[in-house]
Nucleic acid binder design. Structure first.
Length: 368
DNA sequence: AACTAGATCAACCGCATATGA
DNA sequence: TTCATATGCGGTTGATCTAGT
């Protein structure tokens, strides 16, 4: 027994909207609003459309102040930074870009920005490889080790970054007043973990920017570039989920639905063969690690320039430089929550979730 | 001019979550 | 608390456009 359809598929028109349909929907909503019921809306208007389709059409195309195309470099930068930080959570990303819809951003990322990133990466690696003779240590021309930062590697890199941000779970927010309150039991657990770690620093403040003089001031960075050592530590931790979980319970916080697949112990670096993606699959975890590690080292040798760019480290992963990335460009993040009011408008239903949803995610982790 | 491949983007689909009875 | 329904979201599809041959 499947789920009941949201509408009578047989009597519902699909495909592109006609100008007449657009006009009807727009006029009705502007006059009466949605009435809080999208499903009933098409009947009221006399449209042979599914309610979901009406909603989508309104949100993505008809509502006021929608911008299409012509993404600015600043917007590119925000999208890239956010994607790397939180993954494909388009609604949250869209909430930071007034007038942009999640669908638009998603399309833009998938069709252009991603290629821009990967393409630049490929170019730079090709250059490097050609200078190295394009052969590995064994003298083999190894197709399986793509000179480009493959999408899977990028994904894993993203996972790593998410992992890092989980180890520093609130590094996105520089204002302690906004840090969520922990359950007393959780605080106790963290205290005991601190004593386990022998760390005098509150665990969850590791990696947080140093306290700034005065709350609400702009911060220079929100992301502490991982060192190779910390990366290796991460993966060694991952390879032992139990220990990992004990040492760092925050690893179990899922930042998004489509990532952190190793939460249940299915970490990407264990010996289980991973699906082949972009020719990077290796039969042995060691090779997999070394391949990815090489990419990761390579990337990290640039000190995650996207976040804390340094002149001499921006040669390869320089897409962010192209987008005028600088430490100033990540300031928006410190104002993430303040931006909510600025970017919300009565028509922008997607803005509503924003920070609440992010906190829900983290709270979910705490509730585990 | 005709064809093809790749790029783009609007729209659909199914799932997860929220909400209310 | 449970269940049904509505909503929101991200992934995917397919029609259309564009550039190259």
């Amino acid at each position: 027994m499947g789920r009941a359809p949201c509408c009578d598929k047989a009597n519902v028109k699909k495909g592109p909207w006609s100008p007449e349909e657009d006009a009807k929907l727009k006029a009705y909503i502007e006059q009466y609003g949605t009435g809080g019921n999208w499903i009933a809306l098409p009947q009221k208007i006399g449209l042979k459309r599914c309610g979901k389709s009406c909603r989508l059409r309104w949100l993505n195309y008809l509502r006021p102040n929608i911008k299409h195309g012509g993404f600015s470099e600043e917007e590119d930068n925000i999208i890239c930074n956010l994607y790397i930080s939180i993954g494909s959570r388009w609604s949250i990303i869209a909430a930071q870009l007034p007038g942009r819809t999640d669908n638009d951003i998603k399309n833009y990322w998938n069709t252009r920005l991603k290629k821009k990133l990967l393409g630049r990466r490929k170019e730079s690696n090709m250059n490097r490889l050609s200078s190295m003779g394009a052969k590995d240590a064994n003298g083999l021309e190894d197709d399986s080790y793509s000179p480009a930062l493959s999408s899977s590697a990028l994904e894993r890199l993203q996972l790593h970054m998410q992992l890092q941000s989980l180890q520093k779970p609130f590094s996105f927010c520089n204002n302690p007043a906004m840090w969520p309150k922990l359950h007393p039991l959780q605080e106790k657990m963290i205290q005991s973990l601190q004593s386990l770690n022998g760390s005098p620093t509150p665990l969850w403040q590791h990696g947080l920017p140093s306290p700034q003089p005065g709350q609400g001031q702009k911060v220079d960075h929100f992301y502490e570039p991982p060192t190779t050592a910390t990366v290796q530590e991460d993966f060694s931790n991952i390879s032992n989920p139990k220990v990992n979980e004990m040492q760092n319970p925050l690893h179990v916080i899922p930042p998004s639905g489509n990532s952190m697949a190793f939460i249940n112990g299915n970490n990407p670096m264990d010996s289980t063969p991973v699906p082949k993606a972009d020719g990077i699959e290796q039969s042995s975890a060691g090779i997999e690690v070394s391949g990815f590690q090489a990419e990761l080292d390579d990337f990290l040798s640039n000190k995650s320039a996207a976040f804390v760019p340094q002149e001499d480290q921006m040669v390869e992963f320089d897409c962010f430089r192209e987008m005028n990335s600088s430490k100033d460009n990540v300031i928006w993040w410190s104002n993430y929550f303040d931006a909510k009011s600025a970017t919300s408008n009565p028509w922008d239903s997607t803005s509503v979730l924003q920070s609440e949803q992010m906190f829900q995610d983290y709270q979910l982790g705490y509730n585990l």
